[in-house]
């Protein structure tokens, strides 16, 4: 069975800056895969290359076994929340969720029922008539996550999802992540919040300076490092990397 996502040797530069330098990893069914790394390590660029918002200079990305450019079909099964998501400020919360559902190809009654379920779960029904631009940062983030879940995706890609998210919304998001995993999907999370990553992820890839430093299951990584916490492992790997430079 092929991986849900496979990135092979992807490179991406912006002018003279090489943001991603040969990153490779896989997202398998049942994985909550954490993409970890310090600020500016290339996590966001890697994710944008994977979802198809950026075209890698070199390397290949496949989602559900196909290249993103091949057809649009995979997009219905893909949920994505960018870092600091830009949302249409001119729509109300409910309009935006309906709009997102329609953009993902949902039609008819399934739109209404899914939208009201997500509004209830993320406590958005209280602000359903408010325009997006009137929302606080936390509520916007809740809305962005709800919108990414609207098509019940098989693969969910979250870029720093817990920024500004209250504990209640974090818990709800974890429940939805579990649901995706139980249904045979996978979740890719980019974060630098190692506590959260340790709680949610069962697989991690650490990126530093645009290169993969290590990629393994969390349990394997911990056992190799004498049961140390993810934070301790991460910091020691960074120290070793800096010393090697």
């Amino acid at each position: 069975m092929s991986s849900l996502i496979e990135a092979i040797e992807i490179w991406k530069s912006f002018g003279k800056v090489e943001a991603v330098r040969g990153v490779s990893f896989r997202l398998e069914a049942g994985q909550v895969h954490g993409l970890l790394g310090p600020n500016g390590s290339g996590k966001t660029t890697s994710l944008k290359c994977i979802v198809g918002l950026l075209k890698p200079d070199k390397g290949t990305v496949t989602i559900f076994g196909e290249k993103p450019s091949a057809n649009n079909g995979y997009r219905r099964k893909l949920g994505y929340v960018p870092e600091n998501p830009s949302l249409p400020d001119y729509l109300t919360v409910e309009e935006f969720l309906i709009f997102s559902a329609r953009l993902k190809g949902l039609v008819g009654d399934s739109v209404r029922s899914r939208v009201s379920e997500l509004m209830e779960a993320y406590a958005l029904h209280q602000v359903s008539d408010r325009l997006v631009y009137e929302l606080s940062k936390g509520v916007r983030q809740r809305l962005a996550i709800a919108a990414s879940l609207v098509s019940s995706p098989t693969v969910l890609i979250l870029d720093e999802p817990f920024n500004g998210l209250d504990p209640e919304a974090q818990k709800i998001t974890r429940l939805y992540i579990n649901e995706i995993i139980e249904d045979g999907g996978g979740v890719l999370i980019s974060t630098h919040l190692l506590d959260s990553a340790e709680k949610i992820c069962n697989h991690v890839t650490i990126i530093v300076d645009g290169k993969v430093l290590c990629s393994s299951s969390l349990s394997e990584l911990k056992s190799k490092n004498g049961g140390a916490s993810l934070e301790e492992i991460f910091l020691s790997l960074i120290r070793v990397k800096k010393a090697a430079n």
Partner: peptide
């Protein structure tokens, strides 16, 4: 000014 940065929603939608 206000809309171009929301294009990602369409780029990841089932529409062209």
């Amino acid at each position: 000014l206000t809309e171009k940065h929301n294009l990602w929603l369409v780029q990841l939608s089932v529409y062209r």
